[in-house]
C-alpha cells in the first residue's frame, strides 16, 4: 500500500512545544503557511509578523526571521517591513480580534493601498488568549465570557464578514478556508499557496481567512469543535475563493 509521509518543515522546530491548547487550530493553520513557503523554496527568506495573542507562539517554534508587534498592528507592521524588503516574502499571521476589531483599519487600508503582503487570519470567533471573549466574528447567540447570554445583534451587531467588506476591492487575492476536514485543509493550503504566489508576483494584497477551532474557549472537545465549524460557522462564513486578480 502506498504511504505518504506528512513532514513538517525542518525549521518548524517540532521539538519545541508551541504552547497551543489541545485541538487548537493554530497548529494546523500556521504549519500550512510554513509548509507552503518551504515547498516554494521561500522559507529562509520569509519574514513573519505576529500580533500579541496565540498566533505569536509561532515566533518561538519557527526558526526564521520574525517580528512581534502590538495588538492589531501586525498587518501595518508587515506592510512596513515589505516596503523596505521587497525581495522577502512577508506575511502577517493574526487573529480575528486583531484584524477585524482593534486593527481593522489596517486590514482595510492595506487592502486599499494593495500592500504587497500576505495576511492569514484565524477566524475562531473568540479572543482566545484572554479567555474567550466576544470577537467581531462571534456568531449570533454564541455564548462567550463577554456575551454570557449569547451575542445579540441589537447590542453587538452582526458577525463581521471580511469577504463582504472587501467585495469589489482591487486586491490580488481573497479566500476563506477551513480546517474541519482533511479535504478542506488541503484546499486551504492551496489558497495560502496562491496568496504567496500572488505576492511573489508583485500583484499586491492577498488575504486568506481560515475557520479554525478554539476548543478551550468554545467548551467543546476538539472533535465537536470541528463539527461546530461544519454545522454552524460555515453557514455564516462560507468558504471559497472570493477575489482573484485576473479571474472573473
Amino acid at each position: 500500500m502506498a504511504t505518504k509521509e506528512f513532514k513538517a518543515p525542518e525549521m518548524l522546530r517540532t521539538g519545541d512545544p508551541t504552547g497551543f491548547c489541545p485541538g487548537c487550530g493554530h497548529g494546523t493553520v500556521g504549519r500550512l503557511g510554513f509548509e507552503v513557503l518551504d515547498e516554494m523554496g521561500l522559507l529562509e527568506k520569509s519574514i513573519s509578523v505576529y500580533d500579541v495573542a496565540c498566533d505569536s507562539l509561532y515566533m518561538w517554534a519557527i526558526d526564521t526571521d520574525c517580528v512581534g508587534t502590538a495588538h492589531g498592528r501586525a498587518i501595518a507592521t508587515a506592510a512596513g517591513v515589505k516596503r523596505v524588503r521587497k525581495d522577502c516574502p512577508v506575511w502577517a499571521y493574526v487573529g480575528d480580534g486583531a484584524s477585524y476589531s482593534i486593527g481593522f483599519q489596517h486590514t482595510v487600508w492595506s487592502a486599499v493601498r494593495n500592500e504587497n503582503i500576505t495576511v492569514v487570519i484565524i477566524n475562531n470567533g473568540v479572543f482566545g488568549m484572554t479567555g474567550g471573549q466576544m470577537a467581531p466574528t462571534t456568531l449570533i447567540g454564541q455564548k462567550t465570557t463577554s456575551s454570557p447570554a449569547g451575542r445579540r445583534a441589537d447590542v453587538n451587531g452582526y458577525p463581521m464578514d471580511i469577504t463582504k467588506i472587501l467585495t469589489g476591492q482591487d486586491i490580488a487575492y481573497l479566500a476563506r478556508g477551513s480546517i474541519d476536514t482533511v479535504a478542506n485543509i488541503n484546499k486551504t493550503k492551496k489558497y495560502i499557496r496562491k496568496a504567496f504566489e500572488k505576492q511573489m508576483n508583485n500583484e499586491g494584497f492577498s488575504l486568506v481567512e481560515v475557520l479554525a477551532p478554539c476548543p478551550t474557549n468554545w467548551g467543546l472537545s476538539p472533535h465537536d469543535s470541528l463539527e461546530r465549524i461544519r454545522n454552524e460557522v460555515m453557514e455564516v462564513f462560507p468558504i471559497g475563493e472570493y477575489i482573484e486578480r485576473g479571474v472573473k
Binding site: 519574514i47 509578523v49 517580528v67 508587534t69 502590538a70 498592528r73 501595518a76 507592521t77 508587515a78 506592510a79 512596513g80 517591513v81 515589505k82 516596503r83 523596505v84 524588503r85 483599519q105 489596517h106 482595510v108 487600508w109 486599499v112 493601498r113
Partner: peptide, 26 residues
C-alpha cells in the same frame, strides 16, 4: 525610498516599526 500617507498615525507608527525592524532608516 518609500513615502506613505497612512490612514492614521497608528498605521504610520507601526509601518515605521516594521521598516526599522528590517534595518531601514525610517
Amino acid at each position: 525610498g518609500e513615502a506613505i500617507q497612512t490612514e492614521d498615525e497608528l498605521c504610520g507608527a507601526y509601518m515605521l516599526f516594521g521598516a526599522a525592524a528590517a534595518g531601514a532608516r525610517a
